[in-house]
Amino acid sequence: MRTKKLQKLSAAAALAVILLLTACQGKGPGEAEEAEQEEPLFAVNVTRAVEGQLYDYLEVNGDVVAQSSVDIYADTSGKLFRLNVTVGDYVYKDQVIAEVDPSRPGQTFAVSPVKSPISGTITRTPSDIGASITPTIPVATVSKVDSLEINTGVAERYISRVRKGQEALVELEAYPDHRFRTYVSEISPVVDPLTRILSVTLAFQKQDQRIKAGMFAKVKIIVDDKQNIVKIPSECMVERQEINFVFVVNDESRVEAREVVPGILIDEKLEVVEGLRGGETVVIRGQTLLEDQAKVRIIEEVPALEEADNIR
């Protein structure tokens, strides 16, 4: 009797094991197959391609100077007897700014006046009273500080892109949040053979009392104003195997790997010459693992670039 009970228990246990194994074997492959059939979904941020304007510019440095600056010299040699001006004083043409005493031991002469050849502001007085003066040593410098300009230079390889009349934006360290507008007024006819730099002069479109001679200027000369071009943030473009492309999102929340021809890149704004139209939605972040026809979920839409360009 006991043997029969053991046989029944053994049979029941064996059946339970068989059912458990069968259930496990049936569940595993089913889940694996379902996992294989489930399509991955990529979270991305997108933005819109814009048709508009894009500036190309050259970035150089320069100095603010007076348009007219003249050194004042004495007509005779002697000691600087009197200096009638200080830096910042305004003087008129033919005004006496100093006197030189040409007397020598045993010989006394009348003092010789030193006159300003132009009207303007005294910007330098390099000699002190009692100093020896000759017709080759300046007594002072007078400048027309109410009419300022910027002296800068362009490297030889870029001189073909610079022309008179081009607009240039200027930033001064004293006013970092303001851009002063200037234009190319003069271009030197020769290149410096030592530095390979072409001297360029910029005139202010409007004189501003905040601007002082001697200030350091950061200059952006606008060499091209491109209109009606397609532009996107540069981070939208991906390069794989030396091919440039962007991921364009379609109405079915899938992406198309679109090959593009890039143009100029300015301030992280990229011109797209071919392969993209204004208004199309492109992936700006999250494209690292994307492939053609991948399914995506848009997390955020980044504001598009402005149609009118703004140089920072």
Results as ranks from 00 to 15, higher is better:
233 P>K: 06
257 A>C: 05
131 A>F: 00
276 L>M: 06
97 I>E: 04
14 A>F: 13
224 D>E: 09
74 A>T: 02
283 V>N: 03
180 F>D: 00
83 L>M: 14
277 R>M: 12
93 K>V: 13
20 L>F: 10
22 T>K: 14
95 Q>Y: 00
64 V>F: 02
77 S>Y: 05
240 R>P: 09
217 A>M: 05
4 K>A: 11
48 R>H: 09
298 I>R: 04
68 S>Q: 10
141 T>C: 04
171 E>P: 02
306 E>L: 10
254 R>V: 07
273 V>M: 11
147 S>W: 15
237 M>D: 04
259 E>L: 10
130 G>A: 02
116 S>Q: 08
22 T>S: 11
288 T>R: 07
119 S>E: 15
67 Q>P: 04
170 V>E: 01
7 Q>E: 14
278 G>W: 02
312 R>I: 10
40 P>E: 03
95 Q>S: 01
109 F>D: 10
81 F>M: 08
249 V>D: 06
104 R>S: 06
71 D>R: 12
224 D>N: 09
218 K>Q: 08
33 E>I: 13
46 V>F: 06
59 E>I: 07
193 P>S: 01
10 S>I: 15
186 E>P: 02
217 A>K: 06
192 D>T: 05
11 A>V: 08
159 I>T: 03
291 E>Q: 11
196 R>H: 05
309 D>G: 07
295 K>A: 13
20 L>S: 11
194 L>C: 10
197 I>R: 09
185 S>N: 06
107 Q>W: 09
18 I>N: 09
208 D>A: 03
213 A>G: 14
296 V>P: 03
170 V>T: 00
196 R>K: 14
191 V>H: 07
19 L>H: 12
260 V>W: 10
78 G>R: 00
140 A>F: 00
87 V>L: 06
152 T>F: 10
151 N>C: 06
93 K>F: 04
117 P>V: 08
293 Q>Y: 12
231 K>S: 10
23 A>P: 14
167 E>L: 09
52 G>A: 11
188 S>W: 04
96 V>D: 01
248 V>G: 05
61 N>F: 08
2 R>A: 11
283 V>W: 03
82 R>C: 13
9 L>E: 12
141 T>P: 05
230 V>Y: 07
142 V>C: 00
238 V>I: 08
71 D>N: 09
306 E>F: 13
265 L>Y: 06
151 N>K: 15
49 A>N: 03
241 Q>M: 12
192 D>A: 10
307 E>P: 07
42 F>C: 01
204 F>L: 02
64 V>S: 02
183 Y>T: 04
148 L>T: 00
111 V>W: 02
101 D>Q: 02
213 A>W: 05
127 S>Y: 01
239 E>V: 15
220 K>R: 11
208 D>G: 01
33 E>C: 07
98 A>F: 01
271 E>H: 13
185 S>V: 11
149 E>F: 12
281 T>I: 15
2 R>P: 10
136 T>P: 01
185 S>T: 09
174 A>V: 03
190 V>N: 12
107 Q>M: 11
178 H>W: 10
229 I>S: 02
103 S>L: 03
